[in-house]
Design a binder for these strands. Structure first.
Length: 816
RNA sequence: GCGGGUGUGGCGGAAUGGUAGACGCGAGGGUCUCAAACACCCUUUCCGCAAGGAGUGCCGGUUCGAGUCCGGCCACCCGCACCA
């Protein structure tokens, strides 16, 4: 997910892009084709607001921020292919977004309709439901009004089922996101049927209702209508008392607090409805303020015996039939109707037994009972089982200036005409002065190449796309230059807007199997595209974005505390400028660092922190540079390694084969474990293993040959996580080219096995001793040695153990 | 109310059913120094001088063995919500 160019990089960005970079670098090293793109989610209201405040153009603010943020990101050494960088407000980019829109329009996937929308009177725009919090606009905080406007919609609800089912295949998505999407899509299974209406106004002889609990149908005691229900509206026109009530009911605040406190208001219309299973059974028809037109049919039947809300509304009404279960006991609804409030559920084998005998004839409960009820009703010609979704079509139109224009023209004679052309449709004016939202002083956008019989009657659409549509193009756009049919990619980003993936899944059908990975593009023949040129790779991969030729001398370029020079040569002590022979105080030295390379220093530190303690806020301020410097040093395995490589004369000593073997085994274990760590996104564990490897290397008694090999391996293992340090180390060790392009080391399975193993000895499951034995020693031998241990003998007190479990290579447990 | 997630030292966090607390941070002690800084070494779950004992939110179960699996609770966080 691309960042919004707010103007500054924060730790969340660092974390996100660092982790992605580790994966990108690792995948490259393991021979994958990696496309690591970067873009900016650049349309949006902050730019517009800034432009209004300053009198400038939103574009200037946006591109200025991008500039700043890019400069802040570059020191992090992300292996991003910056040559593909873009911003969503680039005409080149949103032109493609518009092309997509027109494709969707062609296929009938977007359409226009009148709709009641949430209108933010301050920002003067329509808001999606999820952009309204507590009845107020999420940005302006102004109370949202309801207005009826003609809007563009995305036909997403047609795909609800598919989107929901596909969730099951997204094993690598966080459970949290999956359940959020599940709730958002909101599938429910129920029965839709009608009550006959007695003496209704013309055109109204029945009331359609939808229920997820058809098994409670015989508990119905009233019918309720939304104030926006067609019948209610008809009555409203005809009767003053109804009109007064509906006005009252609609007025109820939309804030959460208001909803909570709002009384359940009902108005008895005096009309009656006939129960489908007994036409003599009449139910009163109410209009009530708690019934939503948006869901189901806008009409319900109330069952006080089984539904808390209905009970609260008309609790005094007794079930219409004395044989109905009394409302004495509430329990959890069966799993199948998980979204329902508690309703009466019979204890185990007992079932709701209603007069007509269709529900719970036998011991059916939960979903079974509901399906049985649906079957019964269908068989008797009462309604039909339907599956409904909460997911609504998604309103796309936004009344903004700084957004992607909807690429159509409104013409008085031809109606809505798509602008199909090679270039972006009516881009936002280059020069404009925003005084109010959506009111540029010079709105007249270029009409482009639209050919209409009467061009003068035509007006370009003024609506802009909602931002969510941008995210979709984000998936496809970076692949543009390497056309692909099968992008196997993964997004990473915050979960703040967990619904974005729903929309993205909808539009791309197959987005991202895991919410954190790589793009693996293929061309039309499903072959990987040609690799990026070496130079481009190098440019992208070198942490300082230089060509390898330009590699500066690390000794001069690196902060003193991190300079690999410390490994081989001691830095001469610095002298005071005044010629005295005390070494400089540290803070003076730090001052010197600040000017030149602190950016890298800080970047290294931040990368590291993002991987090791991802949740933690940046180090608390207060102790200044001294602390940062200390940490910078402590945070890298390299200084310790350098110490270990110091020439202490070992190279002149005959190498001892045993030590070499031990060193190599250690190395292969490190390869194995770091690989596993990176593979499973366990970056902190991988780094932990690197520390351990570094420590053993520093202490190693092996000869220079084995140590040098281990050091090169170390550099490679470090490279995805700490590329700055790794490249330096690599260069110091005489490695060829950039380590970033070197293949990932492979662990030799044979080297992972120790000849002797240390086995813990447990007594009754508690560790009491340990023994070192050859790895392949027979179980009986191991048992003998284990029993001979002092601790075991002491615990046994001369008795024989009840049982001895020997797990070869793992553990011995003595049961007493 | 419904749904989901998470509970492990002072902190971030490790542990295919097999030595709980890797690694890091912080803290304490030490070496070096006139003194600092840097660096290095040691200690750091709790109780205990020690031997030893207890310990992964709580209660129970399965197992030779449970942080891990099962059942029941509790707490916190997140999301949804007059959704019929």
């Amino acid at each position: 997910m691309f960042p919004y160019p707010s103007g500054r990089i924060h730790m969340g960005h660092v974390r996100n892009y660092t982790m992605g970079d580790v994966v990108a670098r690792y995948k490259l090293a393991t021979g994958h084709n990696v496309l690591h793109p970067m873009g900016w989610d650049a349309f949006g209201m902050p730019a517009e607001n800034a432009a209004m405040a300053s009198g400038g153009h939103p574009k200037d603010w946006t591109y200025g921020n991008i500039e700043t943020m890019r400069a802040q990101m570059k020191p992090l050494g992300l292996s991003i292919d910056w040559s593909r960088e873009f911003a969503t407000c680039d005409p080149e980019y949103y032109g493609q977004q518009q092309a997509l829109f027109l494709d969707f329009l062609d296929k009938g996937l977007v359409y226009r309709k009148n709709a009641v929308v949430n209108w933010d009177p301050v920002d003067m725009t329509v808001l999606a439901n999820e952009q309204v919090e507590d009845g107020r606009g999420w940005r302006s905080g102004a109370e949202v009004e309801r207005r009826e406007l003609t809007q563009w919609f995305f036909r997403i609800s047609d795909f609800a089922e598919e989107l929901l089912d596909a969730l099951d295949t997204l094993d690598n998505w966080p459970a949290k996101v999956r359940t959020m999407q599940e709730n958002w899509i909101g599938r429910s299974r129920g029965l839709q049927f009608a009550f006959g209406l007695n003496d209704g106004p013309e055109g109204h002889d029945r009331i359609e209702v939808y229920t997820t609990r058809p098994d409670t149908m015989m508990g119905a005691s009233f019918i309720g209508l939304s104030p926006d229900h067609p019948l209610a509206k008809t009555l409203e026109r005809e009767r003053e008392d109804v009109a007064a009530f509906c006005a009252e009911a609609r007025r109820g605040g939309t804030t959460e607090e208001a909803l909570e406190k709002a009384e359940k208001l009902g108005f008895d219309t005096g009309l009656t409805a006939r129960h489908p299973f007994d036409t003599a059974w009449e139910l009163p028809v109410y209009i009530a303020n708690f019934i939503l037109m948006d869901y189901g049919t806008g009409a319900i039947y109330g069952v006080p015996a089984h539904d808390q809300r209905d009970h609260g509304f008309r609790g005094e009404i007794r079930p219409a039939d004395p044989r109905h279960v009394p409302a004495a006991r509430w329990a959890r609804a069966p799993a199948s109707c998980s979204r329902k409030r508690p309703a009466y559920v019979p204890p185990k084998p007992e079932t709701v037994r209603y007069v007509r005998g269709f529900a719970g004839d036998e011991a059916q409960t939960g979903a079974q009972a509901i399906e049985a009820a649906i079957d019964f009703c269908e068989a008797n010609g009462v309604g039909q089982g339907v599956t409904k979704f909460r997911l609504r079509d998604w309103g796309l139109s936004r009344q903004r200036y700084w957004g992607c224009p909807i690429p159509v023209v409104h013409c008085d004679t031809c109606g809505v005409v798509p602008e199909r052309q090679g270039k972006p449709a009516h881009p936002p004016a280059r020069r404009c002065q925003l005084r109010r939202p959506r009111q540029p002083a010079r709105p007249a956008p270029d009409m482009g190449a639209v050919r209409l019989p009467a061009l003068r009657q035509a007006r370009p659409a003024r609506d802009r796309h909602d931002g969510h549509l941008r995210g979709f193009v984000v998936v496809l756009r970076p692949l543009h230059r390497a056309p692909c049919r099968d992008a196997h990619g993964h997004g990473r980003g915050g979960l703040l807007d967990e619904r974005r993936p729903v929309y993205r899944r909808h539009r791309a059908r197959d987005p991202a199997p895991a919410l954190f990975a790589l793009l693996r593009p293929r061309d039309a023949d499903h072959r990987p595209p040609a690799r990026q040129g070496d130079r481009a790779v190098r440019r992208a991969l070198h942490p300082r974005h230089g060509d390898a030729r330009d590699l500066p001398d690390p000794r001069r370029e690196w902060p003193p505390g991190l300079s690999p020079a410390r490994g081989g040569e001691r830095r001469p002590p610095r002298r005071r400028h005044d010629g005295g022979d005390h070494p400089l105080r540290q803070d003076v030295e730090i001052q010197e660092e600040r000017g030149r390379s602190l950016d890298h220093h800080r970047a290294i530190r931040r990368r590291y922190r993002a991987l090791v303690r991802p949740e933690r806020q940046p180090a608390r301020a207060g102790r200044g540079m001294d602390r940062l410097r200390r940490r910078g040093r402590a945070s890298s395995p390299r200084p310790r390694l350098a110490a270990g490589l110091r020439d202490r004369g070992e190279r002149h000593r005959a190498e001892r084969p045993g030590r070499r073997g031990a060193q190599l085994r250690e190395m292969h274990k490190a390869i194995d474990e770091v690989t596993k760590g990176v593979d499973s996104f366990g970056f902190n564990a991988a780094i932990a293993r690197l520390y351990a490897f570094t420590a053993t290397l520093a202490k190693s008694q092996a000869g220079q040959g084995a140590k040098a090999e281990a050091a090169r391996t170390l550099a490679q293992l470090m490279a995805p996580m700490t590329p700055h340090l790794a490249e330096d180390l690599w260069a110091r060790l005489g490695g060829e080219g950039l380590i970033a392009t070197a293949p990932w080391p492979k662990a030799d399975p044979a080297m992972l096995i120790d000849e002797t193993v240390t086995l813990p000895i447990q007594i009754n499951g508690k560790r009491r001793a340990e023994i070192a034995v050859p790895r392949d020693m027979a179980k009986s031998e191991v048992e003998k040695i284990a029993l001979a241990q002092d601790a075991v003998q002491k615990a046994l007190e001369g008795a024989a153990p009840k049982k001895v479990i020997v797990v070869p290579g793992r553990i011995v447990n003595v049961v007493i």
